[in-house]
Simulated assay, not measured.
Amino acid sequence: MRPVIAAVIAALACGPAAADEPAANALTDSYIWTELRTELVGDVEIADGSAVFSVEAPYRANDAATVPVSIRQTDPSATIRGARVVIDENPAPLAAAFTFGPGMAPLDMELRVRVNQYSNLRVIADTDRGHLMAGRFVKASGGCSAPATRDPEQALAAMGQMRLKHFGEAPAMSTPRREAQIMIRHPNYSGLQRDQVSQLFILAHFIDRLEVWQGDEMLFTMEGGISISENPVFRFSYTDNGAPTLRVLARDTEGNVFEQTLPKAGQS
């Protein structure tokens, strides 16, 4: 094949994809945000938070029902007390509201959300410097109505099971930061999904309160909505205070309470 022809073919193959992936994926203009902003934070001033924390999410999601979102603090001198994850175009835009304890600083956290249609995904952080916002634009659709991956009977039978995983070796006391992941079995039905047999809508049933503790120290709490994915997963870094376990308490909209004490890796 001639070099010129090969170059043209390569350009045609790579050009559109490259054009579709912005070099800096930022929030876009959103008329709906004007209403959401007042509803969520009122008249409080919100400043650009990109110098304090970053938000990472795929520009084009592989699975709209499990879109990974990472929040990473880039300025450790700031104090992030809490954060709201908002998906502008979702039926219930407020996906989650977090409160963070001191052990989560500097913040480094990942969760998975549903995205119902092309939308801004923004994080509004409550900090010692006021309310700060950063985010990404995500191309995804159908996440809130996507069928559950498990049969309803199986999902309910496993509901409330939890698993804790740590990454890397147990830290030395001089550098006590650890990275952990908590997975909770729960269908987290959005109310927009259909039973694949009866084709009737499945009633909304999701975790609306989550607490994670190490000993008597609260690491974080979450008030959740329908936009948190099925079988929620939270990956985060924290400062180990020496307690041998993490305690996780979850409550759902049906009044079920699930609580487990999970040994840390390297602890008996």
Rank of each mutant, 00 (worst) to 15 (best):
Ala155Gln: 08
Asn25Phe: 02
Phe220Arg: 03
Asp128Asn: 15
Thr66Val: 12
Phe220Asn: 01
Gln117Phe: 06
Val41Tyr: 05
Thr38Ser: 12
Gly266Pro: 04
Ile9Glu: 02
Val248Pro: 00
Ala243Ser: 15
Gly160Cys: 10
Gln161Leu: 15
Gln196Tyr: 01
Phe98Asp: 01
Pro176Gly: 08
Ala17Ile: 15
Gly49Gln: 01
Ile228Asp: 00
Arg129Ala: 09
Glu211His: 07
Ser174Met: 12
Phe258Ile: 07
Phe234Tyr: 14
Pro171Ala: 05
Ile182Ala: 04
Gly224Glu: 01
Ser77Met: 09
Ala17Asn: 09
Ile202Leu: 13
Gly101Ser: 07
Ala204Ile: 07
Glu45Trp: 06
Arg185Phe: 09
Ile124Pro: 03
Trp213Asn: 10
Ala64Ile: 04
Ala78Ser: 14
Arg112Glu: 13
Ser30Met: 06
Arg112Gln: 10
Leu27Trp: 11
Asn256Trp: 09
Asn188Cys: 09
Gln154Val: 15
Gly225Tyr: 05
Arg112Thr: 11
Thr79Phe: 06
Thr38Ile: 11
Trp213Arg: 10
Ala92Tyr: 12
Thr175Met: 12
Arg209Met: 09
Ala170Ser: 14
Val113Leu: 13
Met162Phe: 09
Asn120Cys: 07
Phe236Leu: 08
Val8Met: 11
Tyr31Leu: 12
Thr239Lys: 08
Ile228His: 03
Ser30Phe: 04
Glu217Ile: 11
Gly266Leu: 07
Gln267Met: 14
Val123Ile: 15
Asn231Gln: 12
Lys165Leu: 13
Ala65Gln: 06
Ser237Ile: 00
Arg136Trp: 00
Asn62Glu: 12
Met104Val: 06
Asn256Gly: 08
Met133His: 03
Pro22Met: 04
Val257Gly: 04
Ala95Gly: 10
Gly49Met: 04
Glu223Cys: 01
Asn25Gln: 10
Ser119Thr: 12
Ala78Phe: 04
